[in-house]
Design a protein around this nucleic acid. Structure first.
Lengths: 254, 254
DNA sequence: GCGATCAGCGGCACG
DNA sequence: CGTGCCGTTGATCGC
């Protein structure tokens, strides 16, 4: 058991010296900001990072039950009957936010210096798959050549803009997992905008490892296409295994 | 400093007895599964929950840099030069996943019993706002009456299905924050499906505290409408402040 | 700063 | 189990 004043000192000194503080104890939590929440008494882990990150974890589940992102101002108040740790934050364009953690007992409190200059190297992101695909557009369809990557249109960013052998513009949207309705709608937005701006037919191809039934139907109706893309991810690499044309030219492209 | 064998014991016994384990130390992390990642040496916090949840946190940022959800099988291996903690998991329909945390030193290791039966009560969710709105549809438009809430259609779930005074079906989609292109597309999917199934014109209203310019334009083009909804969130309540009709009947509904 | 999108999204609810 | 979608989404990138 840790006294409230000791626990307060741990958090205060951690904040002052850029260390990470960990508290474990019985507490209730109040949140008010973009939404509001109450969590009654229970044992939880509180992590306070030097950048203001504030995380309350319960005994189960992956997500913090209450949290505040980098930039939060953390204050402590040790009373007779409880220790209160408060995180306040004003996000740009949003309401003021506040989390109060009321500890009725603290089982553990300590802080740790955290030297860490490393950043994650991730393999298999959509962006990386899209890059790989750029060099292999002929696998999707002979004669398909890339025009531009990550082309900005008013309605978002087109993953790959290409041209087919007939000279048609082709919008390619890549998904790293099964494409659903939202992905089909997204592709349709790009194709609609581009076709309207160019005043001619624009093809659209959704490239993903799979597609949901209703997304596929929606593509059909809109004259858009789907290509199944398989890929393998190792460490440290990602590789597109091969592209199987599952469906071709559903619409007519004069 | 904690010995590798002691740290291993902490994790093993925590897993055996349903406690939550916390390790702090210098480590590198390897991940391979749906994607793959490498993170070189640095000081991190590892949390292992009794449900298999596995979280690696760096000194900054809100999100765990590597993680595994509930259900992961955690194993430890204390060697001469390092302590390895591995989490494995096979998600349904997904590839096998594995995280390896290689500790070269452990600054802290302990486990804690976590009694916690409380669950979060959240106020101001979209669902709640939608419920509030159901009782006040006349504020959006005189004569608007609710037909159904959370109505399932093939393409998703319609927040509120209503009927206007002319007998037109009205699909209402509620967003708790500024509506963007995706929200407009979502509404359009519902309206298109319903109008096709019913064989008659169906109105669609996007209700949100704001709307992006391009989303608004897209609504216009599709003959859909937008209503600005303001709300207040207190603890423990959420209240829709009042509805101002910002734009009415952009399309023609014979 | 707004806006659009990705995320190893996670989580939930419903078919 | 797939599918859709909300989330206090967070994080990123381009304008």
């Amino acid at each position: 058991m840790v006294s409230f004043t000791d626990a307060k000192r741990v958090v205060d000194s951690a904040l002052a010296s850029g260390r990470l503080a960990i508290l474990v104890g019985r507490c209730r939590v109040l949140y008010e900001g973009r939404a509001a929440s109450k969590l009654s008494e229970g044992d939880r882990v509180l992590i306070v990072k030097s950048d203001g990150t504030f995380l309350v974890h319960q005994s189960k589940g992956m997500s913090a039950i209450n949290y505040q992102g980098p930039g939060a101002a953390v204050a402590t108040d040790a009373g007779e009957k409880e220790l209160v740790v408060v995180a306040r934050r004003k996000k740009a364009g949003g309401p003021a936010e506040k989390i109060e953690v009321h500890f009725e007992s603290v089982a553990f409190a300590d802080s740790f210096p955290m030297k860490d200059d490393a950043s994650l190297r991730l393999f298999g992101s959509e962006r990386q798959l899209s890059d790989l695909l750029m060099g292999d557009l002929h696998l999707i369809e002979p004669g398909l050549v890339p025009l531009k990557k990550e082309s900005e249109v008013r309605k978002g960013t087109i993953d790959i803009l290409a041209e087919d052998k007939k000279g048609n513009l082709v919008v390619i949207e890549v998904k790293r997992r099964t494409a659903e309705l939202a992905a089909a709608s997204q592709l349709k937005r790009y194709v609609d905008e581009l076709s309207e701006r160019k005043g001619r037919v624009v093809r659209g191809i959704l490239v993903a490892p799979g597609v949901s039934a209703s997304a596929h139907k929606m593509l059909d109706k809109a004259g858009l296409e789907f290509f199944k893309m398989d890929y393998e991810i190792g460490n440290p690499s990602a590789r597109i295994k091969g592209l199987q044309k599952k469906q071709k030219e559903l619409g007519e492209f004069a």
